[in-house]
């Protein structure tokens, strides 16, 4: 089953203004369910913009983007959010953890708008933190845990609502070799559970890992190569 379909996709920032930038042009890509895809490319090649479109953050300027069977270009912001909420889990380069909240509260944030009562969301969040080995940090302020633990908190938050698609933007950029390998091993586990995973990375360690099914290389907003 095809999870993501992109056809003649273009994204232009600040269209019609002096600072107009064509971030993506003529992107054609299909991603199967349970596939792990690595987007490679130098900085400014359009990887993050492509990831944002696949993550229903904003619609493309033109072309077709179909994620989880829904065409994004026709969805207003409200429905993009609803679609993203149920389907996608994000892992960010800077982790994007809310430092003023505790580790547990950070993981519970996506569940709040899904209408989970306090006890149920705490139970669910603690279970995922336990799986990632950071449950002992649950009541710590997020600003007081280490980088490796913070990333596991970010992964826990991305997985807590059991999304079908995981999007990770430069997930190993701030991790050492050992932690990067540990992260990729965990992605392997998720793949075995049937998740579709899209990673962007400069890191050869990511592209070479056994969990990755396909590598797509980008430059200047275009796909220049794709290999399995």
């Amino acid at each position: 089953m095809i999870m993501i379909v992109l056809k003649d996709l273009c994204k232009i920032y600040n269209k019609g203004q002096v600072n107009e930038v064509a971030a993506l042009s003529g992107i054609n890509l299909q991603i199967r369910e349970n596939e792990v895809l690595c987007l490679k490319g130098s900085s400014g090649s359009g990887k993050s913009t492509l990831l944002a479109i696949m993550g229903c953050v904003f619609p493309p300027t033109s072309g077709v983007a179909e994620v989880g069977g829904k065409k994004l270009s026709r969805l207003p912001d409200r429905f993009l959010t609803l679609h993203r909420r149920g389907l996608i889990g994000f892992i960010f380069q800077q982790f994007n953890i809310l430092p003023q909240l505790t580790v547990l509260d950070n993981v519970m944030v996506p569940l709040m708008v899904l209408g989970y009562p306090p006890v149920a969301r705490r139970k669910k969040a603690l279970a995922i933190l336990k799986r990632l080995g950071v449950s002992h940090r649950a009541d710590f302020p997020a600003s007081q845990v280490s980088g490796g633990e913070l990333q596991r908190v970010a992964i826990a938050r991305a997985l807590v609502n059991n999304p079908a698609i995981i999007l990770a933007d430069e997930p190993t950029a701030h991790l050492d070799h050992k932690l990067s390998l540990s992260f990729l091993d965990f992605m392997m586990e998720l793949k075995e559970e049937g998740k579709t995973i899209i990673l962007t990375s400069h890191d050869p360690l990511v592209a070479d890992h056994v969990c990755v099914d396909r590598i797509v290389e980008m430059a200047d907003g275009r796909i220049i190569s794709s290999c399995s």
Partner: peptide, 16 residues
């Protein structure tokens, strides 16, 4: 502003 952006990325709507 960053908090609002993160909440929205995590599925919170503008109305939330």
């Amino acid at each position: 502003k960053r908090e609002i952006g993160i909440l929205k990325l995590l599925g919170w709507q503008t109305s939330d």
